[in-house]
């Protein structure tokens, strides 16, 4: 059973999550034929867009703006890559972007980024897809990722932890409600967070090698 406060919290998060999606003109740009150079610009623009959307979403997470300003930046810096992977997983698994996700996948695969990075990334998206997460679960898991108290340079870990716990609690309840026959669902979602951390570490190497090439 959800409390009135939890229902309201969930509503807020969903409203913000739905409002802050990748712009549709990205989808129309996807069908354009791009040269290798344009492809590079396109993918970096898309990454920037991802971060801007993430910040807009985060600003509206109830309680986030009450945190210390520098802690807010540290949280966003620490989680941006992980949150981007989560959004991308949702994008690919739910075939968003007007159904042009196949074109996008091709574009990423032909971007010049080494396949040693690309393949595990798409396997991760696929494994997340197998969990059949609802939109609400994606949104809450993203909030949980952003509100991770043990990021670098966080001064007031306690306040972050408190906030994260309230979302973890709602996510756990939602998992039970959405997947009554799978009591392990919540634990599996949390397990994916560990994988996300690994990706975040590899992402720096990936971007570096891409730049060099």
């Amino acid at each position: 059973e959800f409390t009135q406060e939890e229902i309201q919290l969930l509503q807020y998060v969903m409203e913000s999550y739905n409002k802050n999606r990748l712009p549709q003109d990205l989808a129309s740009k996807l069908v354009d034929n791009l040269s290798t150079d344009d492809n590079f610009v396109f993918l970096t623009t898309m990454a920037t867009s991802h971060v801007q959307i993430l910040v807009e979403f985060t600003k509206k997470i109830p309680g986030f703006q009450t945190l210390d300003h520098e802690d807010q930046i540290a949280l966003l810096k620490g989680s941006a890559v992980e949150a981007m992977f989560l959004r991308s997983a949702e994008l690919f698994n739910k075939k968003l972007l007007d159904g042009h996700t196949d074109v996008l996948e091709g574009r990423i695969r032909n971007s010049g980024i080494s396949h040693e990075y690309i393949n595990p990334m798409f396997s991760f998206y696929k494994s997340l897809g197998e969990l059949k997460m609802t939109e609400e679960e994606y949104a809450l898991l993203t909030a949980v990722v952003i509100l991770t108290p043990d990021r670098q340079y966080i001064k007031d870990k306690e306040s972050v932890e408190k906030l994260q716990e309230s979302f973890l609690h709602i996510l756990e309840k939602l998992c039970k409600q959405h997947h009554p026959n799978n009591p392990q669902h919540f634990a599996r979602l949390l397990g994916r967070l560990t994988e996300l951390r690994t990706f975040s570490h590899h992402h720096t190497d990936m971007v570096m090698s891409w730049r060099v090439s």
């Binding site: 971060v51 801007q52 910040v55 807009e56 966003l76 810096k77």
Partner: peptide
């Protein structure tokens, strides 16, 4: 990596200040 992190931080700071708000 520090270069890309500065880029990331700049985007975050600008967005937090509402530069990309509707």
């Amino acid at each position: 990596s520090s270069g890309s992190n500065i880029g990331l931080e700049a985007i975050i700071r600008k967005a937090l200040m509402g530069k990309y708000d509707e």
